[in-house]
Computed example of a mutant assay.
Amino acid sequence: MGSSIAVLIPCYNEAVTIAKVVDDFHRELPEATVYVYDNNSTDDTAEIARAHGAVVRREPRQGKGNVVRQMFRDVEADCYLMVDGDDTYPAEAARGLCQPILEGEADMTVGDRLSNGSYAEENKRAFHGFGNDLVRFMIKAIYGYGFEDVMTGYRAFSRTFVKTFPVLSDGFQIETELSIHAVDRRWRILDVPIEYRDRPEGSESKLSTVSDGAKVILAIASLFKNYRPLKFFSLVALLLGLVGLALGLPVVAEFLRTGLVPRLPTAVLAVAFVFLCGLSFATGLILDNVAKTERKQWELAVYRETERSQRR
C-alpha cells in the first residue's frame, strides 16, 4: 500500500484563486487528497473548492492557527502538505517538498521563498521582507538555527510531527510556532527553494503588517519562555541585577566612605531589584525542571506515535 498525502489548504475569502490552487495540486499530486478548510468565508470559496474536487470542511473559530489545529486533528495521512489558498506558492514544488518526508529524510520541509530572490521581486507589501528577516534573526539568536524563510506558509510534515505538535497560536503566528517547535524539539528540517509569486489581481492579503507582526514578536517571546525558561528568566534576572547594581553601588560607595546611608529610598529600591533578580533566576530554575519533565513526556508520545505510524 502506497504512502498517503494530504494537501491542507486553510482558506478565508479566496474565491478568486481557490479553483486554480485545487486544480494545480490535483494535477501535480493526483494520488493526494486535497482538503480545503473554510474559515468563515463570506464569498464562494467553499462552493468553488467543492466543485473542483476538494474535500471541504468548515472551521468556525477564526484564525489560521485555529484552522491548522483542527486540520492536524482531523486528517490522517503519511505526509501533510500545507499551502495557502492565495495561489502564491507553486504546486510544481509539491513533489519536492513531500519526497523527503515520504523517504524518511526530514520531518518538516520548508518552502523557501527567499534564497532565489523571488519573494523580494514579487512581494509588494511594505515591511514584510523586513519582518521576515527580524523573525529569522530572533530565532537564530535564541535557538542557534538559521531558517532561510520563517514565515512561509508552504510546508510539508511527517505524520509523527503533526500528531505530536501542540498548536498554541490562533492566528498568523502559526508559522513562527511551527518553526520554533521544530528547532526546539530537534526535528529534521529541510529548506526547499521555491519560486514565489505575488497574489493575482483581485486577491487581497489578510495580513496586517503592524498588528500581526507584533503578535509574531510576542509569540516568539512567549515560546521562548515556555521552551527555554532558564535562559529566558536568566536574561530577565541579568537585567534586574544590572539595574540593582547601578542603583546600589553609589549608595554602598558612599557608606564605605562616610558610614552613612543618606539616600535610603535608593538603597531600598536597589535591594528590591536585586531581590527580584534572585527571584527571577529561581523561577527559571524551577520552570526549567518542569520543562524538562514535559519534554520527556513529549518524547515518549513521539515514540508511541511513531510506532502507530509504522503499523499503518
Rank of each mutant, 00 (worst) to 15 (best):
N123E: 10
F165D: 00
C11V: 14
I174Y: 14
E47A: 11
T258Q: 11
V302G: 10
G111N: 10
D184E: 07
I5Q: 15
S208I: 11
V274Q: 08
P166H: 03
A253G: 06
T152V: 02
Y119W: 10
A93T: 02
E294Q: 03
E76F: 07
E103Q: 13
K64Y: 06
V261H: 13
S222I: 07
F275L: 12
L247W: 12
L168E: 12
P193I: 06
N66C: 01
M108T: 03
A120F: 09
G202E: 09
T164S: 01
K225L: 02
L240K: 12
L260Q: 05
K163I: 07
A54P: 10
R50S: 06
Y145N: 12
T109G: 14
R69V: 10
I217S: 15
C98K: 05
R50N: 13
L238T: 06
V67H: 05
F127Q: 12
P265I: 08
R95S: 02
D184L: 09
T88S: 09
P166I: 00
Q62A: 12
D24I: 00
G146N: 14
R155H: 11
Y37M: 07
P30T: 03
V135D: 03
Y143Q: 09
S211D: 14
K225P: 14
T42E: 14
G131N: 12
V75R: 10
D84N: 09
L8P: 00
K64H: 01
A77L: 06
S4P: 04
K124Y: 03
M82Y: 14
T33R: 01
I5S: 11
D184V: 02
L279V: 10
G117R: 02
Y37L: 02
K124R: 13
I180S: 04
V252G: 06
T160I: 00
N123P: 03
Y89E: 15
E175M: 09
A270P: 09
A19E: 15
P10V: 03
F233Y: 15
F130K: 11
E294P: 09
T33E: 04
G144I: 04
E201P: 01
Y119A: 11
S3T: 00
K292G: 07
T42A: 08
D212M: 12
Q99K: 13
L300A: 01
V16D: 15
Y196W: 10
D74N: 08
A54I: 02
A221F: 03
F127P: 07
R304C: 09
A270V: 13
R263H: 03
E201T: 09
D288K: 15
Y12W: 13
D170Q: 14
G117A: 05
P100H: 15
D191Y: 08
H52Q: 06
R197Y: 08
G63A: 09
F25I: 07
R27I: 08
R159Y: 01
A253E: 00
N289K: 13
E307P: 04
T152K: 07
D212R: 02
P262V: 15
D288V: 10
I5R: 03
G2D: 07
G241I: 05
T17Y: 05
S179R: 02
V268W: 06
Y89F: 14
A93F: 15
R308G: 08
L239A: 10
E121F: 02
K231Y: 12
L249I: 14
V261F: 07
I139S: 08
V268Y: 00
T152D: 04
Y89A: 14
F255W: 07
L168C: 06
A93M: 05
L300F: 08
L269I: 05
A156I: 05
T306C: 11
V110G: 06
V34F: 10
